[in-house]
Structure formats: structure tokens, C-alpha cells
């Protein structure tokens, strides 16, 4: 059943891009107004500058290879769109994952690198709205996601598999949901789409997409928790290798 609107969309994509797009929550050029773009650029640059300082002052050289690997994995994982019931798809954002592995500061730098490579090399996400994309899909995860994870984990006992997994799942899910709400606010403030429409549509799909985020983040963090827990930004006090029977 092809409606006129769908046909327009197909023609629009077909004539310009040849392949299906993988925008995800990547905002393209043209969706945000100049003021919204500018404000999000300022937020992104301030937090990145702050992160540069903190990494400079507080991180050790052993973190450097992990930054490379974490960025590579998140870039690769972002290419893999998983289907969502209802004819939509989603993919990992990875902000919470980067925050849990590297802490909010190095994690934020890693996320910025990922979105810069995507926008500059692969035309994925607009260059003029890169600030908004870094904030929404990166920094909300590395800051809000990370601090939610840390608060929950230590309030649940800290060093057990259960505390880690429950807090990882909740933080990852929440970061994507919040990102979709923030994205909807930006679209509405830009006059692109009315707020109630943007909110219900964005939040509606991302309630489901966020489940994928939680799942992949748990697999990745869980793998490191079992194999090299010392690599985590907040390693367990006692390194426990045999918690499989929990």
C-alpha cells in the first residue's frame, strides 16, 4: 500500500542517495533553526572543553587504547540498524556505554569523535547541527546515563553482577528515551514540527529503540565486567571472575 506521501519519500531518497538512509536520531541539516543549532553547539563545545581539561588532569595513559577501541566499537555498532516492530529501525547510540567504560570525560571525547567521523566522512548527521547530535546522542549518555548508572549501581550494592546489570540497563534505556525527548524539543523549538506531535512520535518509537540500547550496552559492559573488570572506569572493589551463578 503505497500512499502519495510514501512515494514522495521514496523518490526523494531514491533520487539523491540511492541507498536507504541510516539517519537514526542523527539530525540532518535543515531540521533545526539557527538559534537552536547555536545553543546546542555552545553546550557541546563547553562540555567537550570541560572534558578535555578533566581528561588532561585526571586520566592515565592506560586509558588511551581503550578510548580507541571504545570509539571503534561504537562507530561499528551504530552502523547496525536493528528492526523495531512497526516498520522502523534503531541502532545503538553508545553514550552510556562510553560513560560506563571510560567515565563521562573520556567517554564524551570518544562520542564526539564518532559523530565527527560520521558527519565529515559519511554525511551521516548534518555538519551544521553536529552540536545538537553530539549533545543528544553522546553527551546525554556520557553524563546523565553515566551518573544514573553510578548512582543506581552503588545504591544497589555496587560490586555485584546484579547491581551492575540493573543499573546499566536502566541508564542505557533512560539515556535514549531522554535523547529522543530532547530531540523532539529541539525540533519543536525550531518550528519544524509541533511539540505534541514531535514528543509522542519520537518518544513512542524510542521507548522501543531504547530496549536495544539497553541490551547491547549490557552485553558489552557485561563482557568487560567478566573478562577485564579492571578496565572499567568504576572497577569492582574485589575483582570477581566467577559470578556466573548469580
Amino acid at each position: 500500500m503505497i500512499t502519495g506521501q510514501m512515494l514522495d519519500t521514496i523518490l526523494f531518497y531514491g533520487s539523491h542517495l540511492d541507498i536507504p538512509t541510516h539517519l537514526a536520531m542523527h539530525i540532518p541539516d535543515g531540521f533545526l533553526s539557527l538559534p537552536v543549532s547555536l545553543v546546542t553547539w555552545v553546550i557541546a563545545i563547553s562540555l567537550i572543553a570541560f572534558s578535555l581539561n578533566r581528561v588532561n588532569a585526571g586520566y592515565q595513559e592506560r586509558t588511551v587504547p581503550l578510548m580507541g577501541v571504545c570509539a571503534a566499537f561504537i562507530f561499528a555498532a551504530q552502523m547496525i540498524n536493528f528492526p523495531i516492530p512497526g516498520g522502523t529501525s534503531g541502532h545503538l547510540l553508545g553514550g552510556t556505554l562510553a560513560g560506563v567504560l571510560l567515565g563521562p570525560w573520556a567517554g564524551s571525547l570518544v562520542m564526539a569523535v564518532v559523530f565527527i567521523v560520521q558527519a565529515v566522512l559519511f554525511q551521516d548527521g548534518g555538519l551544521t547541527v553536529l552540536g545538537a547530535n553530539i549533545v543528544n546522542m553522546g553527551l546525554i549518555g556520557t553524563f546523565m546515563g553515566y551518573y544514573l548508572y553510578r548512582t543506581l549501581r552503588y545504591s544497589l550494592g555496587g560490586d555485584t553482577w546484579r547491581a551492575m546489570s540493573v543499573s546499566t540497563v536502566i541508564a542505557a534505556w533512560t539515556s535514549v528515551f531522554v535523547a529522543s525527548v530532547v530531540c523532539a524539543l529541539q525540533l519543536a523549538l525550531s518550528g519544524t514540527v509541533p511539540l505534541p506531535v514531535a514528543l509522542t512520535a519520537m518518544a513512542g518509537w524510542h521507548v522501543l529503540i531504547a530496549i536495544g540500547e539497553a541490551f547491547i550496552t549490557l552485553i558489552a559492559v557485561g563482557y568487560i565486567w567478566r573478562t577485564r573488570p579492571d578496565l572499567l572506569f568504576d572497577p569492582p572493589q574485589r575483582v570477581l571472575f566467577s559470578k556466573d551463578s548469580e
Binding site: I19, P20, L23, N81, I84, G87, T88, S89, H91, W205
Partner: peptide, 12 residues
């Protein structure tokens, strides 16, 4: 990778 439109894509 699924070629379905993803979140924002679908909404737009």
C-alpha cells in the same frame, strides 16, 4: 542492517 527508516527518519 535493517533498511527500515529509523526513529527520527520515520517520524519525519
Amino acid at each position: 542492517a535493517s533498511s527500515n527508516p529509523d526513529g527520527l527518519d520515520r517520524v519525519s
